[in-house]
Simulated assay, not measured.
Amino acid sequence: MRYLLIFCCCLLSSGATAQPGITEMQQAQQNLKSDFFSALDCALVLAAIFGIVGAVRIYHNWQMGHPRIDEQVAAWFFASFFMMLAGVFLKAVFGL
């Protein structure tokens, strides 16, 4: 009985080492890397767009004589800064 149990354990362990799907996992990792870097580029482009649109709107309000533009400057700056940090955070989380 004891030898039968040892034999069964040996069969189970030999089957566990021969897992299929190594190439599929490598392909999935490669797809994740390529999609992630395009998402990182998209985050940086959105940050640049936020910065440009914010600068134009703040300049327009400043020229029109609006007395309080400090809040708008901070809002547009931190929106752009958040998008840049979101890309860096995703890069750190996924380890890519």
Rank of each mutant, 00 (worst) to 15 (best):
G15H: 01
A16M: 07
A16Q: 06
T17N: 07
T17K: 05
T17M: 06
A18V: 04
A18S: 13
Q19V: 05
Q19A: 15
P20H: 03
P20K: 12
I22K: 12
I22P: 05
I22T: 14
T23R: 01
T23P: 00
E24M: 13
M25W: 11
M25V: 14
Q26K: 10
Q26D: 09
Q26M: 11
Q26H: 14
Q27T: 10
Q27G: 02
Q27S: 08
Q27A: 06
Q27N: 04
A28N: 12
A28M: 14
A28L: 12
A28H: 02
A28W: 04
Q29K: 10
Q29F: 04
Q29M: 14
Q30S: 15
Q30Y: 07
N31T: 13
N31I: 09
L32T: 06
L32F: 06
K33S: 09
K33Q: 11
S34L: 04
D35E: 11
D35W: 02
D35F: 04
F36N: 09
F37H: 08
S38M: 00
S38P: 00
S38D: 02
A39D: 04
L40M: 13
D41K: 12
D41I: 05
D41L: 06
D41P: 03
C42V: 05
C42W: 03
C42T: 11
C42L: 08
A43H: 01
A43W: 01
A43G: 05
L44C: 10
L44R: 08
V45H: 06
V45L: 14
V45F: 08
V45M: 12
L46C: 05
L46M: 03
A48G: 12
A48P: 05
A48K: 05
A48Y: 03
I49A: 07
I49Q: 04
I49E: 07
I49C: 02
I49G: 03
F50W: 02
F50L: 08
F50I: 03
G51Q: 11
G51K: 12
I52T: 08
I52L: 03
I52D: 03
V53N: 10
V53Y: 03
V53L: 11
G54C: 01
G54D: 00
G54W: 00
A55S: 15
A55E: 15
V56F: 14
V56L: 15
V56P: 10
R57C: 07
I58N: 14
I58R: 09
Y59C: 14
Y59I: 11
Y59D: 09
H60R: 15
N61F: 02
N61E: 03
N61M: 05
W62D: 03
Q63M: 13
Q63D: 08
Q63G: 12
Q63L: 12
Q63I: 10
M64E: 10
M64V: 05
M64T: 09
H66N: 12
P67D: 14
P67K: 15
P67F: 13
I69D: 13
